[in-house]
Amino acid sequence: MKNVKLHLIALGLVIISELIGIIQIPVGIGTIVLLPMLFAMVLGILTTPKFLKIAKEKEMDDAGSLIGLTLMLLMAKYGTNIGPTLPKILAASPALILQELGNLGTVILGVPLGVIVLGLKRETIGGAHSISREPNVALIGDKFGLDSEEGQGVLGVYIVGTVIGTIFIGLMASFLAVNTPLHPYALAMASGVGSASMMTAGVGSLIAVYPEMEEMITAFGASSNMLSGLDGIYMSLILALPFSEWLYKKSYKFKYKEFPEPPMTKEEK
């Protein structure tokens, strides 16, 4: 809390990252946009004991407990972008609500790949039923326990998402914005996956490409992200998890020519 060293490291990271600034790299047909926040994250990892040893165990722990709080100013800023555009957001609400079903695309792609190609078992259900952010980890933990195969899956995807998710979503947003006919507003809505940092990376990359659309892009991203936070857990529970179970059985049968063992919920163990 009163960890002055941590805040000084953070200040140093911010200064270096902002001095580097926004870098746009043309790659073949498109552009990759690298934002200061990505540099801050990568440099932040480099300060930890495995690398430069500037930040110690204590700084890492304190940083972890502060992330939630540091997000609040950004959230307040998002609201101030939604307010002035509220009539437009409301007019677009059917799109905002329907794109939440995009979560099921995760299941359709992820479950067969996990079972058939990667040879994973029930880890697939935990890891591919959703994008595995905090509410999903909580849900799987509640239903199967985090020490179960499903729990291993959801935690694994959660950790990968935390480490490279922001970078990956940012790259994907700018790549799709430049190389596909998908409109920046649609990509902004898609960026709201229920993780503020991923959404910010997605939205930030879009703004770097389309600065004149900043207000609407951030407003759509933030409102979609809020919606994901609100409905994400119900979506997982009612639609995505049962659908994952069903597709898991089909994929399992396809690969091993027999049906899998029936799943065990926490109560049955």
């Binding site: 932040g44 930040a55 922001t166």
Partner: peptide, 23 residues
Amino acid sequence: FLALATPILAYAGIYTGKNLDSL
């Protein structure tokens, strides 16, 4: 708004150092 995001990711990066092993 990008200026607000950079400090968050700085803290997140420092914290991520902790998760590298489990990754």
